[in-house]
């Protein structure tokens, strides 16, 4: 079973992630943990020093973390973005699209299920900054290439 699924080559950060409150008090930390009610934009001045941002999903139905992830990536954050908590295998591909590149689910999922979930979608309809070219771009590539 997978306890930490990671799509990065670099070494994982060893330091524990601190809360946003603790982070503002001792701002030399390199790992921070966002709760659903935290504003991801509060971290934007510190992105250079951060190597890991954990985004907590206390319940899989609370989707605020998806927006938090995209906001950090849109601001240029290229450190590790880890989804933690009630992370379900059926959410993996959507989380990847929002910029998450590691997953520490409370209840580990099987590698086969994770692989199936991640390879599910041949293409995507939206541009989300994850590097995938959306269908509308592919359509017009194809047209201009004749």
């Amino acid at each position: 079973m997978v306890e930490l699924l990671r799509f990065r080559e670099d070494e994982p950060v060893a330091d524990p992630a601190v809360t946003v409150d603790a982070f503002s008090d001792q701002s030399n930390a390199s790992a921070v943990r966002l709760e659903p009610g935290d504003d991801a934009r509060d971290l934007l001045p510190f992105l250079d020093q951060l190597r890991l941002v954990e985004i907590n999903f206390p319940s899989f139905g609370d989707g605020r973390g998806y927006s938090a992830a995209r906001i950090l990536r849109e601001a240029g954050f290229d450190g590790e973005l880890r989804a933690v908590g009630d992370v379900l295998v059926d959410q993996l591909s959507h989380m990847r699209r929002c910029g998450f590149d590691s997953f520490a689910p409370e209840k580990p999922f099987s590698p086969a299920d994770a692989q199936a979930a991640l390879s599910r979608w041949p293409q995507v309809y939206q541009a989300t900054g994850d590097g995938r070219r959306p269908i509308w771009a592919l359509r017009h590539d194809a047209q201009s290439n004749g």
């Binding site: 989707g63 998806y66 959507h94 929002c98």
Partner: peptide, 13 residues
């Protein structure tokens, strides 16, 4: 319709 289909940010509103 196409934009909103499987929009990854907005599946747990």
């Amino acid at each position: 319709r196409q934009w909103s289909s499987f929009h990854p940010e907005f599946l747990a509103l």
